[in-house]
């Protein structure tokens, strides 16, 4: 059964059809919420919230985008709302600069990637996950969508209601921010002089 057929059935109240839509999308949704929050419990709650909101709002899903894109957007919004609430609770007030404000030139790197010498693959993986958690929500969001969930620039633009050019720029700055974090944590090393 196609996604469209499942959506039609779910709109008519068929919760088994909706269950199939969930199974088709849950891996991508859960991985998004997990990487955005870094916490399996929060990730589970937010993924559930996204699917529940999808069910409740199904009547108004017009099919302008794929259901998978729509529910992904709900999950993304749920994550951002959650992180915003969490930050307020923790009284963390220092805002991260947005990519649009970051007009500085990229720093000249003083380190270089050396997985062969410095890190086992597993260690590097952990370092990258920790690095992701240190990024601004905005940067982590686009990197998770692009690098972990494999969304295209246009899909990310659709989910976040941005221009594709902005997505391209934001991903570049997110990558550069993560690179700098890994440099500072010693996971990139000083390049040889040449």
């Amino acid at each position: 059964m196609t996604e469209q057929e499942l959506v039609t059935r779910a709109k008519a109240g068929d919760d088994e059809a909706f269950a199939q839509l969930m199974r088709d999308n849950e891996k991508r949704i859960y991985n998004l919420t997990l990487r955005m929050t870094g916490n399996p419990e929060d990730a589970m709650d937010l993924a559930q919230e996204a699917f529940l909101n999808a069910w409740r709002g199904l009547k108004f899903f017009q099919g302008d985008s794929a259901f998978s894109t729509w529910v992904y957007r709900l999950a993304s919004n749920a994550c951002i709302d959650h992180l915003r609430r969490k930050k307020r609770r923790q009284d963390i007030s220092a805002p991260m600069p947005t990519d649009e404000e970051d007009d500085s030139q990229p720093d000249i790197p003083d380190d270089r990637f050396r997985p062969d010498r410095e890190l086992e693959r597993r260690e590097l993986r952990r370092a990258v996950i920790r690095g992701l958690e240190q990024l601004s929500d905005e940067h982590r969001q686009v990197l998770v969508m692009r690098e972990l969930n494999g969304l295209s620039y246009q899909e990310i633009a659709d989910v976040l209601d941005l221009e594709a050019g902005t997505v391209k720029s934001r991903i570049a700055r997110a990558r550069n921010s993560l690179r700098k974090i890994l440099v500072e944590s010693g996971n990139f090393s000083i390049p040889p002089s040449s």
Partner: peptide, 20 residues
């Protein structure tokens, strides 16, 4: 150097993979 770093980062992110 940035290009090389980012290439390594790209590979490292790919290795993160998806969880069940």
């Amino acid at each position: 150097a940035i290009a090389k770093d980012m290439d390594g980062l790209h590979s490292a992110l790919a290795a993160v993979g998806e969880v069940d």
